[in-house]
Amino acid sequence: MSGGNISVMDYQSQFLNEIYHVDSTLGDKGLQVYQNNLHMTAMLSLTVTYPVLAQMVGEQAMFVLSHRLLRAELPESGDWADWGQQLPALIRNSELNAEHPYLVDIAQFEWVFHLASRSQFHALNSASLQRLADEALEQTFITLQPSLKYLRSSYPVHGLWRLHRSQTEQEVPSRQQLENVMNHQETGCYVIAQGAHNTNIVEVYEDEFNWLRGISDGLSVAALLDIFPAFDFAAWIASAIQRDWITHLE
């Protein structure tokens, strides 16, 4: 790097530092424009990534959260959609968590959905299913959609998510609607993955959840059948194919 480049680098890094860290409320009008734009863009972006959370906490809280998050997580990819992963952790450590403990799970759920909804879908290689007829089940592995993620919650996050997503942005669900969701038992295990046409969210029971974890941990079909002898593999593989969860066997 030439000497000239270093001076350019210095000016640019210093300017970035001023925007991110210097208090401009009394100072430079121009710097304030850059700081306001950064903050408002961050807030808007976070509201797009976390639409349900935004409806739950309201605009003002999103304003403060985005401001705090800019300090905890620097944008670095050039695409605002990549920014915001640290929000669930930030909420967990915020004063919101005591009164609203479900928010961390909602935020986690939304981040996972956000990632899956932007991922590529891989169609099933149905020829590879023939590996099940093979002798070597110890060397046969199920490959799931790369976007497939699972999570747990003690709160009815799927119901809350659906309820808020069915409202327009400005609407807040009624107390009655919220109560209905809160009183509805969910399994507490969720699987989110990119599908052929939509990003799918499926509530599963404990046994299926553990089975999926086994697959992700790299267990062979033989090992899975050993560990989960009661699990109905045949019924599962049919439903997993319908849910677009499997890409191939290898």
């Binding site: 000239g4 480049n5 640019q12 970035l16 991110y20 863009t41 961050a42 620097l74 944008p75 050039g78």
Partner: peptide
């Protein structure tokens, strides 16, 4: 750019100095 040696994106269009070094 960098902030405290961490890579960062401005999320904005920041102005250049119109000098030879920047031109390069």
């Amino acid at each position: 750019g960098n902030i405290d040696d961490m890579p960062v994106h401005a999320g904005d269009l920041l102005p250049l100095k119109f000098n030879h070094a920047t031109m390069n």
